[in-house]
Design a protein around this nucleic acid. Sequence first.
DNA 1: CTAGGGTTAG
Length: 576
Amino acid sequence: MCSAAKFLRLLQGCNSMDRLRKIHAQVLLQGYHGHPAVSAKLLSFCATSAAGDLAYARRLFSGILRPATDHWNALIRGSSRGPAPLDALSLYNAMMRRASSRPDAFTFSFLLKACALAKDDPKCREAHASIVRSGFFSHVIVGTNLVRAYADNGSIDEARRVFDEIPDKDLVACNSMISCFCRAGLHDDALKVYDRMRQSGVGLDEFTAVGLLSSCAHLGALGFGVRIHKFAERNGFLRRNVFVGNALIDMYAKCGRLDEAHRVFDGMRRRDNFTWNSMIIGLGIHGHAEKSISLFQRMLMAGVRPNSISFLGLLMACSHHGLVDDGLKYFQRMGSDYNIKPDLKHYGCMVDMYGRAGKLDEALEFIHNSPFKDDPVLWRMLLSASRIHGSVEMGEIAIQNLIEMSANNAGDCVLLSDIYEHAGDSQGVARMRKMVKDQGIKTTPGWSWIEIHGEVRKFVVGDTSHAESEEIYKKLEEMISRAASLGYATERSTEWLENFVDSTSDYHSEMLAIALGLLRTPKGTSLQIVKNLRVCKDCHSLTKYASRIYDREIVVRDRVRFHHFKEGICSCNDYW
DNA sequence: CTAGGGTTAG
């Protein structure tokens, strides 16, 4: 004699479709297929377990006379994770048409998961409307799903609005919002969620710490990061959870504290791929290419398998340091020894590495032999390398390729114009200026910031908006005249485009930040600057003098790497 | 055990 309870037990232990078919046959034979719990269990196995079969689930479902909410949910959930996530929406619509049962919070959670996976913004809005109609918009889990779905679709403002309207935001909802802001690059907003969390008393956990640390890393917000570190230590997050240690390593490395990053690394009981990669990348961006390589060796000896990002870190390290032979060796090994296919970024590192080392012919050959020769990125790298090494010939080859693929922009013209200028070709300069005019200039505005007494002070090029501007400019003039007496000569150029538009006499943002740092911090304090673009040659040179004249350590985080200036020397050895 | 959250690169 078989009862419903017996079937439910059997289904609990079921782990394959073969087994399920046998149980299903028994269910049919003994007339239990109409039993709601039994049919729901059968359905949920087929639709949602890894060993399931969605087509079988659909057949099962069509045999159910009056499907209950749970039946619909199982099928919607299964579809949302399948190859056609939007089937979940069609199922939902069918559910509403048949009206045999009402959707619940689970229904909407699965529906939103489908919208997020499908990256379909209109469907997401449609689901949102259904949620509002059904009165579930204030449900915290549905709301969290909706935030995620909008964010995954790139509608971060909509995600923010939904989050703001959740009446009882809990810890998970806040953590989700933080990670969405983080992924959208809105790091200030991510940190602001933390302030709200502190006020509302939802607490914070490992997830919060990891998200916030990632934003601190992107911003270079050391002070904030240290606070989270202390909190994590007090609460034992570090011992429990490898993610927190990984995020800390990254944060310290990106905030200029390689020593602290190393300390966290050394103290970790468990290390995964992320741990090693973050440390390898950290060493690389600080210019310690050899240490980065030896850490990679240690990673191999520890039995951790490198992935595509490990190699990217390694190649970046080699590229920053001009280790062309090592770079090529690892580039080849990633395919031959580890079966990892290099992607565009790996090729980019290689072109950059050859280019900056002055091996322009090799760079060109490398592009031609790569599967990405139709991508403007590589040609633009060649163009910028041509500018560093003053090669008119290669610069023209690069821009010609960009023009052929209709990818040339004003920035490219500025670079080539610069090359012509150095070569004394005034006609070339004029041609480029005309091209720029025709296209209109679109550049990323440059900014730098420095943290002084816990306060972030941000500068743009030629900034005069600060209360102490007059004092800052006076300090800069003093710095320049003292540097000049030691041999400094201005090398103003249009480099990195920060001040292309008629403002070649204005000071770049990092110099303003450094001047304020010198004025407002005690003698001997080291200065930390974060900059969104790359440092130009002139500022680099002036900063070297400044470190010597004022006897200060000055650390500048550039768009791609760190420069540690001390006693008139930079850690990059003028190679960057 | 029918639901929502995490790190590196770009």
